[in-house]
Each structure stands twice: as structure tokens, then as C-alpha cells.
Nucleic acid binder design. Structure first.
Length: 120
DNA sequence: TTTCTCACA
DNA sequence: TGTGAGGA
């Protein structure tokens, strides 16, 4: 794993930062956690600490939901993203492209390019 | 002051 | 999901 990816995985962001970055409410962010969509770490006084990866996962969830997807679907997609990233050891941005391709299909929008299907 | 958990109208 | 209580 590259140093860049390690930094992206460092959970150092407090709720306030995540809220500013995602435009979600603290309530929603915590709720998504119960839905297994993100897995922030706990530090000092039981406070959640998010990583940059968590943040853009939250952003993906946000517009995924805005595109009409339900939680069950989002959970499958985020789980698949992790599986793909882990299995193929690909970059996060690559895994994100795969995820976006799926979201568009499931949202009944544009189908994924044939070049991306090989990754699904 | 910020975030946490729990519970409810 | 929003909001308020009661703590840390």
C-alpha cells in the first residue's frame, strides 16, 4: 500500500470536519455508521475519528441516495468497493470509478462503459 | 464547547 | 431522521 493511501486511511477528522465536508448532519453520519456504511475509529473520550476515505465514502453515499438508491443498495456497493480495493489492491480512485459505474446502472441512469464492466 | 448515547412526540 | 436530556 502506498504512503498516500495510508495517509488517506488515517482517522483524524472529528465530526465537525466531516459535517463541513459532506453537508450531512451529525445524526445522519452516525446513522450511516449503524448501517455499516462507514467504520470510523474511536479515540480519546469515545469520540469518532474519520479518515479521508470515510469522508468520500460518505460523499458517494450522499449522492447515491440522492440518485434514488436505498440503504441496502448502498451497503452492497460500499461493501463491494472494499472487496474490489482489497482483492485487486487497486487505487481508491479506481475502486471509486467501479462504484460510480454501478451506481449509475442501479439508479437507472446511463449504463457503464464496456471498458468498466470487466471490473464489475 | 463539542460530541456521545438514548429516547420520544 | 430531528431534537432534547444528561454526561464526559
Amino acid at each position: 500500500m502506498s504512503e498516500k493511501q495510508l495517509r488517506r486511511s488515517l482517522a483524524v477528522l472529528p465530526m465537525s470536519t466531516v459535517i463541513a465536508l459532506t453537508d450531512l448532519t451529525a445524526r445522519q453520519i452516525r446513522y450511516y455508521e449503524t448501517q455499516e456504511l462507514v467504520h470510523p475509529k474511536r479515540n480519546d473520550g469515545n469520540r469518532r475519528r474519520y479518515s479521508l476515505n470515510d469522508v468520500d465514502r460518505l460523499l458517494e453515499i450522499k449522492d447515491g441516495l440522492a440518485s434514488g438508491m436505498d440503504f441496502a443498495t448502498m451497503r452492497k456497493l460500499t461493501a463491494k468497493k472494499e472487496a474490489v480495493a482489497e482483492k485487486k489492491k487497486v487505487s481508491d480512485t479506481h475502486a471509486r470509478r467501479v462504484l460510480e459505474a454501478e451506481m449509475q446502472q442501479l439508479a437507472g441512469m446511463r449504463p457503464a462503459h464496456p471498458s468498466l464492466r470487466q471490473h464489475l
